[in-house]
Amino acid sequence: MREGMKTKQNMLCPGSVMADRKKKAVVEGIAQAVFGVCASFVILVTASITVYMIGKGASAFWKVGVKEILFGTVWKPTAEKPSYGILYMILTSAVGTGLAVLLSVPIGVLTAVFLAEAADKRLAAVVKPAVELLAGIPSVIYGLLGISLLNPLMYRLELALFRDSPGHRFTGGANLLSAALVLAVMILPTVINISEAAIRGVQPGVRAASLALGGSRIQTIFCAVLPAAKSGIVTAVVLGVGRAVGEAMAITLVSGGCVNPPLPFYSVRFLATAIVSEMGYSSGLHRQMLFAIGLALLIFIMAVNTALTKIVKKGAENGG
């Protein structure tokens, strides 16, 4: 009865501010539900990937033993007495990614500074599309370039460095250093783009305050703007690490592929490349082991993400 009256009142008095509660509630409800479904879809996907990987990967850990896998250094999955140690691959992924990030972050952040604070607008107008193009190049192309350009150079360096050490096993230039260099170039666009957004997002008041205190442009950028953009830059590093750890295609081509400790001029195998190169012929426990490697990779990247995010949060609490 009241609802009816209200609708009638609304129709009769166009200026009335009384709500048509029912209709409004329905629209709001539907909208809420749509957002909710979309959001939970993401949760569903993440959760199911994690659960699936644990399910598939854990069986090998169960059969071979966590210690043998994580701390074993011999990887002979197809031998008569097979051995499934992936320690060297884990270390290679960690060291290779670390090197790539160390190379890429300084260059990337400085490029981002250049783009965001551009002193020279015309040059920036060339650099920006170049960065975008770099991001769009398929990773296998990086690998091809690595093979044809980087590896021969690296081989020459190797010949010069190890001329007098007969114990060295020559790699033809396909080694950890080559892989790290290729990875560094590959994550560069990510680092540049995210850092640039972070630097542009810094409150204009921060710059003005520093300049008004007598800071030069350079002092302002390094002492005020970059510290203020810190959390965004760490995000850039996190995403860069993510891309580097998961990358397989390009470094399969340039890293050599033998399971060795991660030393600069050793032919090495990363976690991700092991999966790619062995999946085709693997079977049985070997196949399960490759899923276990996938699980290790997943845990590795989650750990790095959590650690870096924690660092940022802690920094923010202590006045950062």
Binding site: V206, A209, L213, G214, G319
Partner: peptide, 19 residues
């Protein structure tokens, strides 16, 4: 730099550094 050391400025919006 020397000028702005001698002539300080306070802005409309409080703009402390995030430090």
């Amino acid at each position: 730099t020397l000028l702005r050391k001698k002539v300080g400025m306070v802005f409309q919006q409080p703009n402390p550094f995030p430090m």
